[in-house]
Nucleic acid binder design. Structure first.
Length: 147
DNA sequence: CGTTTGACTACGC
DNA sequence: CGCGTAGCCAAAC
């Protein structure tokens, strides 16, 4: 199921460009990144939901390590680390260093740390779509009791 | 060459 | 809430 996008180079570039926009201490998801990239012609929207996310993972796996691409800020839709092996441990470590905390199951609270995406102007300039939300807009981080 | 195995996710039990 | 599955490709063994 690891079909590659029709134009891997363009897709990779889009993924890396978006990933670099994620602020320190925030996380995005494979699906959210994919949702900003227009689906290639012929790919059904439903299929793209899964395929796009997989392609994003593939692109990040091919990330050049000399271009400051903050790949560690992209995690899965459950808030967990998908990167296998030592690199995954390093990913968690890097995120913790920038203030992201993990629960006992090894998941990040997307309501708290989830990214809302780049601003609209930036998206327009780069011919990208507004992202799916990975947290509900009204929700406040953690519990701030209201009194 | 035939097999295996995915940096994913929505959905149905 | 946890677990299995589809997807039907493609690169690494």
């Amino acid at each position: 199921m690891m079909r590659r996008p029709p134009d891997p180079e363009t897709f990779n570039l889009a993924v890396w460009t978006i990933t670099k926009q994620i602020p320190p201490g925030c996380v995005s998801t494979y699906g959210q990144i994919a949702s900003m990239i227009p689906p290639p012609p012929g790919i059904e929207a439903d299929d793209y939901k899964r395929l796009g996310a997989i392609w994003v993972g593939q692109s990040l796996n091919e990330t050049p390590d000399d271009q400051g691409i903050t790949w560690q800020r992209v995690i899965n839709s459950k808030g967990g680390i998908s990167v296998p092996g030592a690199a995954g441990l390093r990913q968690r470590s890097l995120l913790e260093d920038e203030g992201v905390s993990f629960d006992t199951k090894g998941n990040v609270d997307l309501q708290q740390y989830g990214w809302d995406g780049p601003n609209a102007d930036w998206l327009t300039q780069h011919n990208l779509h507004p992202p799916i939300a990975i947290r509900r807009p009204g929700d406040r981080p953690q519990q701030l009791s209201l009194f």
